[in-house]
Design a protein around this nucleic acid. Structure first.
Length: 462
RNA sequence: GGCCUCAUGGCGGAGUGGUGACGCAGCGGAUUGCAAAUCCGUGUACCCCAGUUCGAUUCUGGGUGAGGCCUCCA
């Protein structure tokens, strides 16, 4: 069995993944708050951890990996959106949950094993808070229940922060309700007309961090193998998850390996709604093949920041085009995928996707050089397997090329066939002028003709 | 102010204590009626200054530059 090395944020180095139970490898990634559409930045952790999921499944078996990603469906921003639209929060959350799932499916992200929601775990959240309060890690105030950070001796392990340092640089306003400025809300008491749930502290709703602690405990156990999310979640979100869970569980670690993906950069400007440069997945997918968006997200190592540019996407469209062209030449829909060891090996080294793409280009070259039917069958099988691991190259090549210029009607295809047929005839008559003229006409239709000893073939190009 | 990343050719982007992947673009060749595609070959790079070392892009220290977090933003 392949050994998987992963960079553990908490240890600041690569460590071998040793599952607590290799028949039940557990992975949890923080998911979206469903109050609007997802942008491409939200997609990076989805695509990165989906690739990890695919690798884990290939190593431990499809049925032995449990991947949970939550849906946060209780939140101030959801309340605001619901209030503005004059509807119940469930209308907002259901709408955007469905859109989110559809967007991720577009990017080749596999469905999760579990998709816990906050609204379905309010009881567990309350139980956890009661436990923390009983053990003097939490206290009630006029507006809620807070976790008392100084009650945890080793708080700050993940983000390497010291309580004193944080207070020195604290920019948060002093909250008279809190005993310490670092304390954070476990439960917020409801203001009039806010959506709320009953609790021992009256009507209210959970704080931000507690949901993940409760959902992990219920769905996956006290300690999970891998916990992932964006780099920006290290503090305070993951730090606080650790605090809540470990204080409630007598110090039992919440996760053995913490993984964090780097942020996407957008030129000089941070993507923000006020700048109007938020790149939605739906908008990008109208302009580019979704598969190229996924490949672009995998083109840099997951921990590195990634500059998101049109040029990057365009380059990855070319990469896919080349791979599909190679597959098209040796296509046989009876071939079953073979997972190439070269790809598995580099992915096992902290998910080195750029190196995997280098291996992929070798596979493409092998496919182009394949002469015998055996060579072709193996080359195609390995390309399919590489695609399966990376979540790309899952279309039939013909479909990819057809998608490049949208839906084709039969009339156009017939027209192209006729032109190509005429061209074959004039070429046979060595009427090169007319042949070139027809090629120009075809080029205008985004059609590329290839002349070979056995006639001419054509395909759509970008 | 505190914590954390990063710095590789025209561009993107891996990796390594000793000939510096891979892709795109460029160039040469094969192939082609000419092309396209494909194959073969090829030039150009490791931020600066010290130190360790026979030897550093790779390790250590310092500097400079960029980014992230410290604000319920993936």
């Amino acid at each position: 069995m392949s050994k998987i090395q992963l960079f553990n944020t908490i240890a600041k180095q690569k460590q071998q993944l040793i599952p607590i139970n290799d028949k039940k490898v557990t992975l949890y990634v923080c998911g979206p708050t469903v109050y609007n559409r997802a942008h491409i930045g939200n997609a990076r952790p989805e695509v990165v951890f989906d690739t990890l999921f695919r690798l884990l499944r290939s190593v431990y078996g499809d049925d032995h990996v449990i991947f949970a990603r939550n849906i946060t469906d209780i939140d101030d921003k959801i309340n605001a959106a619901a209030l503005e639209a004059g509807v119940d929060i469930s209308v907002i959350t259901e709408k955007y949950t469905n859109i989110y799932r559809a967007d991720m499916a577009l990017l080749g992200v596999l469905p999760k094993t579990l998709e816990p929601k906050v609204t379905e775990h309010v009881d567990e959240i309350i139980a956890l808070i009661i436990k923390l309060e009983k053990d003097n890690h939490a206290y009630e105030t006029a507006d809620g229940v807070y976790f008392h950070v100084p009650s945890m001796a080793n708080y700050g392990r993940l983000s390497r922060r010291k309580l004193e340092d944080m207070q020195a640089g604290a920019r948060v306003e002093i909250d008279e309700n809190k005993r310490n400025s670092a304390d954070f809300a476990l439960w917020k008491k409801a203001k009039p007309n806010e959506p709320s749930w009953d609790s021992p502290w009256g009507k209210g709703r959970p704080g931000w961090h507690i949901e993940c602690s409760a959902m992990i405990e219920k769905s996956l156990g006290l300690t999970i193998d891998i916990h992932g999310g964006g780099h920006d979640l290290i503090f305070p979100h993951h730090e606080n998850e650790i605090a809540q869970s470990e204080c409630a569980h007598n110090g039992v670690p919440l996760a053995n390996i913490w993984m964090h993906n780097g942020m996407l950069n957008f030129g000089n400007d941070k993507m923000s709604k006020s700048l109007g440069n938020v790149l939605g997945i739906d908008g990008l997918a109208e302009k580019w093949p979704a598969e190229a968006l996924r490949l672009s997200l995998l083109s840099a190592h997951y921990r590195a920041p990634l500059d998101w540019t049109d040029d990057l996407i365009s380059q990855n469209v070319k990469t896919l085009d080349r791979a599909y062209r190679a597959m098209d030449e040796i296509w046989d829909n009876t071939i079953e995928p073979i997972l190439p060891n070269s790809i598995i090996e580099v992915l096992c080294d902290d998910l080195n996707t750029p190196q995997a793409l280098a291996e992929l280009s070798t596979l493409v070259r092998n496919a182009n050089k394949a002469k015998t039917s055996d060579q072709k069958a193996i080359a195609l099988a390995e390309l399919l397997g590489a695609g399966q691991l990376l979540g790309i190259l899952q279309l039939e090549p013909k479909q990819w090329f057809a998608n490049q210029i949208g839906q084709k009607d039969d009339g156009l295809t017939a027209h192209i066939d006729a032109l190509v047929k005429e061209r074959v005839e004039v070429r046979a008559a060595k009427n090169w002028a007319r042949a070139d003229e027809i090629r120009d006409e075809l080029a205008a239709l985004c059609v590329d003709v290839k002349d070979g000893p056995e006639g001419s073939t054509w395909r759509f190009v970008v």
